[in-house]
């Protein structure tokens, strides 16, 4: 217990020093936040114009797709905000910064988490919130407590899944710095293609997204519950089940650290 409270205290300290650093460059902060907004705005425009032409895709209407995309975008942005240290970890390995982490008497994960707190993602989250509000007002969902709870669980589970992916990405940095581009399909790709409910991509993709990387647990299934297409209460809990994904991610990370300390490369 004392360990935990000391870890939380340290993490808060990290966040505060990150924010103080960032506030040294207010213009840059503002521009990056705006840039985040613009980049995802493109995706929104893509959806917007597709639905000018088509009325529905796979049975989902415009406002429902926006609801789906906004939740995925929020999940991703939250993960990126808190776990950015892992997302940019290749730099830490390349510059040898990670050696510094290893000569400190603290958990490596805590230190890497603390190394970056990316507040600029707030730009993207702002957009997600606007879309979310549009989505919930237009999709005709009758909001009940279980449905609100589902959204909260989606945000928690989704942040966990994307964090897990960033951790896997970082763990792979211990083995190769060249082949990492492929991981983009799982992170940026999932954000990009998560704009449409996973079911759109067909049966096989749905299976993949249920059992391999649990995107569907934090997007498709709970969305069906929110939209009233499924009523079984266990759909509420599915997003929390996605937390299992952190287990292999952290195991791979541990393995990576061990590899790093034995090969030193």
């Amino acid at each position: 217990m004392r360990n935990l409270s000391s870890a939380i205290k340290l993490y808060r300290h990290y966040i505060s020093i990150n924010i103080r650093s960032m506030m040294q460059y207010k213009t840059s902060f503002f521009l990056t936040a705006m840039g985040q907004f613009l980049v995802s705005f493109n995706v929104f425009l893509g959806i917007f114009f597709m639905f000018k032409r088509f009325s529905a895709v796979d049975g989902f209407f415009y406002s429902e797709v926006l609801l789906c995309y906004s939740i995925v975008l929020l999940e991703f942005s939250l993960a990126e905000m808190f776990v950015r240290g892992f997302d940019t970890f290749s730099g830490m390995v390349r510059t040898g910064e990670f050696d510094r982490v290893l000569v400190r008497p603290r958990n490596e994960i805590l230190q890497v988490l603390g190394s970056k707190f990316e507040l600029t993602r707030i730009g993207r989250m702002l957009q997600a919130v606007v879309m979310f509000i549009y989505g919930i007002t237009r999709s005709g969902v009758a909001w009940t407590f279980p449905k609100i709870l589902t959204v909260v669980f989606m945000l928690a589970g989704g942040t966990a899944v994307f964090s897990g992916l960033f951790i896997i990405y970082a763990a792979l940095c211990f083995f190769t710095l060249d082949g990492l581009e492929f991981m983009n399909i799982f992170t940026d790709g999932a954000r990009e293609f998560g704009k449409y409910p996973v079911g759109v991509y067909g049966e096989k993709m749905l299976l993949f997204a249920t059992f391999f990387v649990p995107y569907a647990l934090i997007q498709y299934y709970p969305l069906l519950f929110i939209l009233g297409r499924r009523t079984a209460p266990f759909y509420i809990l599915l997003p929390l089940a996605a937390f299992w994904f952190l287990i292999p991610a952290l195991a791979l990370w541990k393995f990576g650290v061990r590899h790093y300390t034995s090969s030193g490369s």
Binding site: L10, H13, I17, R20, S21, M22, R100, R104, Q111
Partner: peptide, 19 residues
């Protein structure tokens, strides 16, 4: 090992918590 953009003492304070 010092944070680039904040006063040195802030980095020291963080080290106090790290160690």
């Amino acid at each position: 090992q010092l944070w680039w953009d904040v006063p040195v003492i802030d980095s020291f304070e963080l080290l106090k918590d790290i160690y």
